[in-house]
């Protein structure tokens, strides 16, 4: 998928194709006919006011909504052309391929090493200790945390600073070698320096993964993403190049939201 391809219709080279996705919580419809083609090796930002459906849609992509009993999803979502809601798909396996980082850093109350090693271990990715060490080191390197923690890998992950904890969670998410990384407001609990470090990391990761970030900060969306999707009242209003969305959005609702006229 090239930088110029912008489409809501499915394309063969998109990483993720969503077609007519509807989500209901009981009788309440949270998403209406969302169709979008998420490109590979780019950062896509989901923006929109609270309750617009952006997090709901993000959680459809690794089937996190399966854990909510009243939640019902219809429509198609494919990852590399494979239907992720097909009966044979194991959600646990899917979540190894589609990693997720949450709003609040949530390291396990375990050592730094064990936090990162947990996923690779349960997915049987390492044959021996040396291989596991390598996976942990590589993940921490890619999360730009290795230099800060290499001498204290066996101390608790919860003892790190907020920014370090969030990078640890990113290391944990990428240790299972996913191809897609979902980030739900990953910087909202961080200070500006830690935020800048995470944003730099997101740029870096996008050379390898498809990254989708939900953010309330429009400036953050503008800084880190190449594609932006604007959600409003459960509809995907506009999907386009981030440059265009923030300079010449084509829908009045997008314009009103990004210029601070509707919340």
């Amino acid at each position: 998928m090239t930088l110029d391809t912008i489409t809501n219709a499915p394309t063969t080279d998109a990483k993720i194709n969503a077609t007519n996705v509807n989500v209901f919580y009981d009788e309440t419809q949270a998403l209406h006919d969302v169709s979008v083609a998420i490109p590979d090796r780019m950062v896509t930002a989901f923006i929109g006011p609270s309750g617009c459906g952006k997090s709901t849609f993000l959680r459809c992509i690794n089937r996190m909504n399966d854990t909510i009993p009243i939640c019902r999803v219809s429509g198609d979502i494919t990852l590399d052309g494979q239907d992720i809601y097909a009966p044979h798909v194991d959600p646990v396996q899917l979540r190894a391929q589609v990693g997720m980082v949450f709003q609040k850093p949530n390291p396990f109350p375990k050592s730094i090493y064990d936090n990162v090693a947990y996923g690779p271990k349960i997915h049987g990715m390492a044959q021996n200790r040396q291989e596991l060490d390598d996976i942990v080191e590589q993940a921490l390197q890619r999360a730009a945390l290795w230099d800060e923690v290499k001498d204290r890998l066996h101390t608790s992950g919860t003892g790190l600073s907020g920014g370090q904890q969030q990078r640890l969670c990113i290391a944990r998410a990428i240790a299972t070698r996913p191809e897609t990384l979902l980030m739900d407001e990953p910087c909202s609990a961080l200070d500006p320096i830690a935020t800048a470090q995470i944003e730099e990391l997101i740029q870096d990761l996008s050379s390898r993964f498809s990254v989708i970030i939900v953010t309330h900060s429009m400036q953050q969306a503008a800084r880190v993403s190449q594609r932006t999707a604007f959600f409003h009242l459960g509809h995907l209003v506009e999907f386009g190049k981030t440059d265009d969305i923030f300079t010449r959005p084509s829908d009045d609702r997008t314009e009103a939201y990004i210029t601070g006229r509707i919340g």
Binding site: E255, A256, T259, G260, R261, I262, G263
Partner: peptide
């Protein structure tokens, strides 16, 4: 765009 900003000082 005629609508006012939520932040009046910006207008």
């Amino acid at each position: 765009m005629n609508t006012d900003h939520i932040l009046k000082a910006f207008d």
